[in-house]
């Protein structure tokens, strides 16, 4: 597998970032739903949110780096088997996925930093609060976080469904290309 993307293949770094993001997003969604239902004396009551917050910030950094790398690295051409309507929808789904990713991460950050506290990332470093002290900020940011995350997961499932459609129905290289095959 090559490191950089070319006109007919995705580079190894983009592929790694893509799948890392996929695993993290679904993992964080499940973790978020699970940890908010934990009781006070559960051993994960503190660990769960710490893992959720820390991983979220690392994903934010990875996604920022991924976008920069994508600009620099370029991307392979669309396959000839991709229909014009598929190309348009795919483009908008990809843009919306990126926007939702950032929106989910920013809304999460705004919950944890609503009172001006910094957000600790596994104790390695802390993200300082910026926008804080707005009346009801943690509640509004919390509702948005869940709403946007649900939208992100829904769209990611559509994205995955489309990849499976290309693989099993159209029998083209779309999915295999993202697997580096």
């Amino acid at each position: 597998m090559r490191w950089r993307s070319g006109s007919d293949h995705w580079g190894g770094l983009m592929i790694a970032l893509h799948w890392l993001t996929a695993v993290t997003v679904f993992g964080l969604f499940a973790l978020g739903l699970w940890m908010t239902g934990l009781t006070y004396y559960d051993g994960w009551y503190q660990k769960g949110p710490n893992l959720h917050r820390g991983s979220g910030v690392l994903l934010f950094i990875a996604t920022g780096a991924r976008l920069l790398w994508r600009l620099f690295d370029g991307r392979p051409r669309e396959l000839p088997s991709h229909q014009p309507w598929e190309r348009i929808i795919a483009k908008w789904v990809h843009i919306t996925l990126y926007l939702l990713l950032f929106a989910v991460m920013v809304s999460g950050y705004l919950i944890s930093t609503a009172d001006g506290r910094a957000l600790s990332v596994f104790g390695w470093f802390a993200l300082p609060a910026t926008l804080h002290g707005i009346d009801g900020q943690e509640d509004l940011a919390g509702e948005l976080h869940l709403l946007l995350a649900t939208a992100l997961i829904t769209l990611a499932l559509l994205h995955a469904g489309a990849a499976l459609k290309h693989h099993f129905i159209d029998r083209d290289r779309t999915l295999r290309r993202m697997l580096g095959l």
């Binding site: 919950i111 609503a114 506290r117 943690e138």
Partner: peptide, 16 residues
């Protein structure tokens, strides 16, 4: 009731 303030936003969110 929503004006509860324990000096910790995430806890206040939970309390509400």
């Amino acid at each position: 009731a929503a004006s509860i303030d324990s000096n910790h936003a995430e806890r206040d969110k939970h309390l509400r």
